[in-house]
Deep mutational scan, measured.
Amino acid sequence: TRRLSELRVIDLRAELKKRNLDTGGNKSVLMERLKKAVKEEGQD
Rank of each mutant, 00 (worst) to 15 (best):
D11H: 00
E41W: 00
R2Y: 06
L7G: 09
E40R: 12
N26P: 13
A37Q: 08
I10A: 15
E6W: 02
K39F: 05
D44W: 03
G42H: 15
K17T: 10
L34F: 05
S28M: 11
E32T: 10
N26C: 08
R3A: 11
K27A: 03
K18G: 09
K17W: 06
E40N: 07
E41A: 09
R19L: 10
K35S: 06
Q43D: 04
E15L: 00
I10R: 15
V29F: 01
L34V: 06
A37G: 07
L12W: 01
E32R: 09
V29M: 14
L4E: 09
Q43A: 13
E40Y: 00
L7W: 12
S5M: 07
D22E: 06
R3C: 04
V38Q: 11
T23S: 11
L7P: 07
T1A: 11
G42L: 06
T1C: 12
M31S: 04
K17E: 13
K36Y: 05
K36A: 13
T23H: 02
V38T: 12
R8Q: 14
E40H: 10
G25N: 00
E40Q: 12
L34M: 07
L34R: 04
A37S: 06
T23F: 04
K39C: 11
N20S: 12
L4Y: 13
K27P: 10
L21R: 03
K35M: 10
K36F: 06
A37C: 09
T23G: 04
M31I: 07
L12G: 01
R8M: 08
L16S: 01
R2S: 14
L21Y: 01
L21G: 02
E40C: 11
R8W: 01
K36H: 13
G24N: 13
L34S: 05
V38H: 11
E41M: 03
T1N: 15
E6C: 07
K17A: 14
K36T: 12
G24Y: 09
L16M: 04
T1S: 11
I10P: 15
R8H: 10
E40A: 13
L12Q: 05
G24W: 09
R8F: 01
L21D: 04
R33E: 08
V38Y: 08
L30P: 07
D11V: 02
K36S: 12
S28I: 14
L12M: 11
K27I: 03
A37E: 07
D22M: 03
N20T: 05
L34P: 12
V9L: 06
L12A: 07
E32A: 12
L12P: 02
D44G: 14
N20W: 00
A37L: 00
Q43P: 09
Q43Y: 05
G42R: 12
S5F: 04
L21H: 01
E41H: 10
Q43S: 13
L16C: 11
K39M: 11
K35E: 15
R2W: 11
N20R: 06
K39W: 08
L12K: 01
D22R: 02
G25M: 00
L16N: 02
M31H: 06
V9Y: 00
T1K: 02
E6D: 14
T1D: 14
S5R: 08
K17M: 15
E41K: 02
T23E: 09
V29D: 14
V29W: 00
L12F: 04
R8T: 15
K27G: 04
G25S: 02
E32W: 03
R2K: 14
S5E: 14
